[in-house]
């Protein structure tokens, strides 16, 4: 009897260990931002394990990698970054290079918009706000995954084809929704200028060459709402009043307290919190890229129409 029990235990443990080996043997992908992780999951399905360095709500511009991030990248097989210096001080490529891991820059092939930053022209990294650009991200991810795992190429391409069609419908839906806003009211003022690609693609802020409008004197980066002097605050208030915007939008990655006070001072209503550099937490409407875009657009339309 004992022998049979030992045999059964041996048999079950053999199966469990082979199952654990199957999971452990899946290649691991580490993405820098929540958006890129979502694109990667849409392509990878269950064939790869996709992990993300940034938690929902974290700001990629100011993020400081932790020892856990270093360990995560060390255990990975491939890394994905946005590029165009979205990851402040290129922290993702530094992590990957230090760990000796291949890295895919998912914005490769995108024609970046040039924006002025501290007196010099730089490439705007927030390219995912145009679904057409996301098609480029997805194609780069498919190429990277197909090189990593050639046997999975057909499945990666099939999943990507479905996601690309969803992006096409999303693009069209956004145009229809924005069309509900009278043209003279299509003024998008946000707490940092992350929406250039969105404004260019969907024709908002005509008076600003279809580029994002952030109040003068307000920016993301080191201060993230802090370091506001009375002079800068005066400029911000004046800038909002001059923009003629029906509403002012805050962003989920930026502390909204100060901008709410400023909005009160200017008499402009707060349109709501937009997802910008990060998607929403698990279970929220903005936990996927399509959900994030959908919720942003609905907030804009409701506040501006």
């Amino acid at each position: 009897m004992k022998g049979i029990i030992y045999g059964l235990v041996f048999f079950v443990s053999l199966f469990c260990s082979s199952f654990a080996v199957a999971i452990a043997s899946k290649p691991i992908v580490v993405a820098s931002t929540t958006q890129i992780a979502d694109f990667a999951r849409q392509v990878a399905g269950d064939r790869l394990i996709v992990k993300c360095v940034l938690a929902p709500g974290a700001d990629p511009h100011t993020y400081q990698p932790t020892p856990d991030d270093v360990q995560m990248v060390l255990e990975s097989d491939i890394c994905l970054e946005n590029g165009l210096h979205l990851e402040g001080k290129n922290w993702m490529s530094t992590l990957a290079t230090d760990a000796g891991k291949p890295i895919i820059t998912t914005t490769d092939g995108i024609k970046p918009l040039a924006i002025s930053s501290e007196g010099e022209m730089v490439a705007d990294p927030h390219a995912w706000f145009s679904p057409k650009n996301v098609a480029v991200y997805v194609n780069n991810i498919v190429k990277g995954f197909s090189q990593l795992d050639p046997d999975g190429k057909q499945n990666y391409e099939a999943r990507a084809t479905l996601f690309l069609q969803q992006l096409r419908v999303l693009d069209s839906w956004v145009r229809q929704q924005i069309n509900r806003i009278p043209t003279q009211r299509r003024i998008l003022v946000t707490t940092h200028d992350a929406f250039n690609y969105f404004c260019t693609e969907f024709k908002l802020n005509a008076n600003n060459n279809f580029l994002s409008i952030a109040p003068v004197g307000w920016s993301t980066g080191a201060e993230v709402g802090g370091g506001m002097t009375p002079e800068r605050r005066r400029k911000v208030v004046q800038s909002i009043k001059e923009s003629g915007a029906p509403a002012l939008f805050v962003e989920t990655t930026i502390n909204p307290k100060q901008i709410r006070e400023i909005a009160k001072e200017t008499g402009v209503k707060i349109g709501g919190e937009l997802y910008s550099d990060s998607m929403g937490p698990e279970g929220s409407a903005g936990e996927t890229y399509i959900g994030m875009m959908r919720e942003n657009v609905l907030l804009m339309v409701n506040a501006l129409k």
Binding site: P131, K132, A135, N139, V142, K143, S146, E157, A160, T161, L164, Q165, L167, R168, D171
Partner: peptide, 9 residues
């Protein structure tokens, strides 16, 4: 031309 086409082939 479809801007959302898969271009890996």
């Amino acid at each position: 031309k479809d801007p959302f086409a898969l271009t890996t082939s």
